[in-house]
Amino acid sequence: MQTSDQRPGRGLLYRLYQNRLRRELDEAELPRHVAMIIDGNRRWARQLGYDSAVHGHRAGAAKMREFLEWCDDLGISVVTLYLLSSDNLGNRTSEELADLIEIIAELAEELSHYRDWRVQHVGSDAGLPVPLVAALDAAEHRTEGKKGLHVNLAVGYGGRREITDAMRSIVASHHAEGRSLEDLAESLTPELIGEHLYTGGQPDPDLVIRTSGEQRLSDFMLWQAAHSEFYFVEALGPDLREVDFLRAVRDYTRRHRRYGG
């Protein structure tokens, strides 16, 4: 039987390597905003012989709590977690979706009582069950004004929908002011659109991480990630280790960021 220090990611050599990775990081080069696409929860559950994906989703949620701690301890200011896409609302079974909704509501509640974190729902309420919307709203109100890690929970989120909603918001504001279409055309800028996104007022993600070896955006932060750096991890979501995260950040700090080519 393995002891806690013998399990992967728990031994002395692992901790020494983890500390070395931390020392290699240049604090001035750290990302301000990290976005995470957690993937592989269902595969993780199947590989371990579970008869339901709910076990993988619960393990994934627990890992996201750890991930937020890693980011906070490193001094990162904003983290966005992609938890439930608008597409998921139509392509998951009703049983799995019900489990996911319960897990996300519990996660939002827990995070709103943890450290000095501010929790924000980024996404659309459309199609979300009333209890989940209530849980996300309560977490936002409970943490409003907190100055610690800013945690965005992307729930009912779709990048195309976000841009569409931003444009609708701009047009509605313009119409309410009684201005012409010519004025609207003149006033449209990337900065104005950015202000009307779900993440308006926040820095765009510097680093986007995705687990499970998949290399696609899946309609996540299409506008904000225009100049982001991407890092893909082979580990399934619940198996993500702190050294995987630190390697991603180290890789980011070593890249020469280019804008537009």
Rank of each mutant, 00 (worst) to 15 (best):
S4D: 08
D5T: 07
D5M: 01
R7W: 08
G9H: 02
L16W: 14
L16P: 00
E24D: 03
E24M: 13
E24Q: 07
D26R: 14
E27A: 13
A28R: 14
P31C: 01
H33M: 06
A35K: 02
W44H: 15
A45C: 08
A45Y: 12
R46N: 14
G49E: 09
G49A: 08
A61S: 15
L68H: 10
D73T: 00
D73Q: 10
Y82D: 01
L89R: 08
G90V: 05
I101K: 04
E106M: 02
A108G: 09
A108K: 13
R118Y: 05
R118M: 02
A126E: 10
L128H: 00
P131S: 14
L132A: 00
D137K: 14
A139V: 02
H141D: 12
T143M: 08
V151F: 03
T164I: 12
R168P: 00
S169P: 03
S169N: 11
L188Q: 10
L192S: 13
G200E: 10
G201I: 01
G201K: 07
G201P: 01
P203L: 01
E214K: 10
Q224R: 01
E229N: 07
F230Y: 13
F232A: 05
V233P: 02
D239N: 10
D244M: 02
L246Y: 15
R247Q: 11
D251K: 06
R255T: 08
R257A: 07
